[in-house]
């Protein structure tokens, strides 16, 4: 466990010493503050749109940070050859995968915490309401979803040699799953065989990241999601993440690393 935590610590240090997070946070804050300063059509409920935009920016920023940070971990270790002194220590390849995953996921937790604190302050100052539990659920589910994304990108990072190719392919697949994944079931219904079976198989195979998206519920003050549903969603994310990490380890464990 200490090795996994030590590796995770290096990933977190790397995140806060790079500029990605600061740039995205400043951009999110600037856009939200500028929009918050303008009064559109004297609409009293304008704050809801402001919340929606802020949440969208948080989703986009967190996805960018999660994918970019994870995608460069193992390919960059190989490219910069930092993997060699690391694996020359009593570190197994499973620990490298687990440590990198833990680091990226914990780094995302820190990122989400900063973004959501900003969101709570902005929405609370405009609405004078503080539905902290709703916000916590939104953040928690987003973090679980990022766990699946990070495991998915980690799997890509043991297959693709260059961080850039892994980042691009991961972005396309994650955005594709988020936008198209939910409609695949309906699409399958309208098809004939064998396309129907293929579409159905895909529908049940891909992780349904959209299930973790509760932005509208937060923006429009809907009731709390039952905690059991949150728990099941977390379990679903844990199963997918574990499966993807196991697949990554299977590929990585026998991969020759030539100095």
């Amino acid at each position: 466990m200490r090795t996994v935590l030590a590796l995770a610590g290096v990933v977190i240090k790397e995140l806060y010493r790079r500029k990605d997070f600061y740039v995205l946070f400043v951009l999110t804050a600037l856009i939200t503050l500028v929009l918050g300063a303008v009064k559109f059509f004297n609409d009293e409920h304008i704050v809801r749109y402001l919340k929606e935009i802020c949440l969208l920016l948080i989703w986009v920023s967190a996805l960018v940070i999660a994918i970019v940070t994870t995608a460069r971990q193992i390919p960059a270790e190989r490219e910069n050859r930092t993997i060699f002194p690391l694996l020359a220590k009593p570190v197994s390849r499973a620990q490298v995968i687990a440590g990198k995953f833990a680091g990226c996921w914990l780094a995302c937790a820190l990122v989400l915490a900063v973004f959501y604190i900003f969101f709570v302050v902005i929405s609370g100052s405009r609405e004078h309401e503080w539905p902290i539990l709703n916000y916590f659920q939104a953040m928690w589910l987003q973090w679980m979803m990022l766990g699946v994304v990070i495991a998915f990108v980690m799997f890509g990072s043991v297959i693709f040699a260059a961080p850039s190719s892994n980042t691009t392919i991961s972005f396309i697949l994650v955005i594709g799953i988020l936008f198209i994944g939910r409609h695949l079931g309906e699409v399958a219904l309208r098809q004939t065989e064998p396309v129907r079976s293929i579409a159905y198989t895909l529908y049940f195979l891909i992780p349904h990241l959209e299930w973790f998206d509760v932005r509208e519920r937060v923006a429009f003050h809907q009731n709390l999601i039952p905690w059991s549903a949150c728990g099941l969603a977390s379990l679903y994310a844990a199963c997918y993440s574990a499966f993807l990490l196991w697949a990554a380890w299977l590929v990585f464990r026998r991969k020759p690393l030539n100095v």
Binding site: R2, T3, L5, A6, G9, V10, K13, E14, R17, R18, N80, R81, T82, I83, F84, P85, A88, K89, P90, V91, V259
Partner: peptide
Amino acid sequence: PELTYYYKFLTAEEILRFYAKI
């Protein structure tokens, strides 16, 4: 190793602390 391959964003004492933890 023949050439140096270490995390460039860490300081000397941080990299030694990291390996000591391992």
